[in-house]
Design a protein around this nucleic acid. Sequence first.
DNA 1: ACAAAAACGGTACGCTCGTCCCACTTTAGT
DNA 2: ACTAAAGTGGGACGAGCGTACCGTTTTTGT
Lengths: 199, 199
Amino acid sequence: MTGPAQSGSRRKPQERALRRKEALVEAAVTLLGEGGFTAVTHRAVAERAGIPLAATSYYFTSRDELVARAFAVLVERDLRLMRASLTEEAGIGSLVELAQTLLHAYASDRGRQLGLWELYLQAGREPELQDIARSWTDGWHDIVRTLLERAGYACGASEVRFLATLVSGLWLELLVEDRPGSLDRAGEMVARALRAISA
Amino acid sequence: MTGPAQSGSRRKPQERALRRKEALVEAAVTLLGEGGFTAVTHRAVAERAGIPLAATSYYFTSRDELVARAFAVLVERDLRLMRASLTEEAGIGSLVELAQTLLHAYASDRGRQLGLWELYLQAGREPELQDIARSWTDGWHDIVRTLLERAGYACGASEVRFLATLVSGLWLELLVEDRPGSLDRAGEMVARALRAISA
DNA sequence: ACAAAAACGGTACGCTCGTCCCACTTTAGT
DNA sequence: ACTAAAGTGGGACGAGCGTACCGTTTTTGT
């Protein structure tokens, strides 16, 4: 029942337990990408992680907590991945190309991205997810900021928001309806936004 | 079981049946707004519509079909509402004010909007919903186009996409995380986008 | 060594879900 | 008037769900 693992701990948690808990979150993340929010069930997660069913209730007091944890991990990982591909390719080509690289990287991981947006949207209904959703937005804005700074653009908070929001919209539309030529048009729009900022 | 109501109909459907089917869709729309995608169950819909459970299976071959129908209705209604508030207020103030009016109207119907986006996102996984999702985007673009034309802006397909996508992103962010001052910042960004277009 | 706490895992409860079955009533074409 | 189709609705089935129970094993502080 109520797992004493994460509540009032009078002893330090064991190492294997931490690994198992991590494995559960990992399985939840995978399942979220494969089948969306509804696919993340206790049984599916347990089976995917190779761990008995009861363990999921032991490590997480509820399914919501497990989902929230998966959301947080997914956001963190997403931001890290974005930062990584950003530092790698900096200075190679134009910002537009970089944006396309980012968008392309996302398209290769469609299921995971859909799951992430799904959880983001869920945050609109469940206050417990709000903070994570905001941290995603904030992190993304930070990335856009450093990107603009590095390229020598003027970037107050307003400019950053402008570009970040546009790319988010672009990216979501690209993800849901993948129409032919969307990528090119996306690049075109980013270019237009950059012109608007530099002016 | 398999309802012969919508398949090979050798007789014309009865009027009461049509009303009931409509009532079911209406209930589904409401429930979607209240509790999101997962709240639209056969039982909940039937109860809300004041109709026995079995009827939901009679009129719709599956839950997915019911949800898809609700999605279509929601999109159509949403576009109509937007067009309406658009013709009403045209010429009153600036485009920025108009955008704020639109965004404000949406905020007043938060649950419904969240449900709509939820279904839009779901379209990324279920091909049956793709067409509806695209018709939403297309309809929205049309609205932005007439809006721009009326205000005397140059509006090729590129300009329309630019503004429409930006506002979509704005709008979603406003909906999920409602941070203080978001509305003002949204107006600011729309103004910037319009400057970018007119230039 | 020994208790206490943590970890473990098989199992079961209670519930809700989508869907189906089937007997019944109403409607409409002839 | 008759008959076949359409409509109706109570009930049930099987599956999957979140979660709790509880005896067992392992770890840990003393």
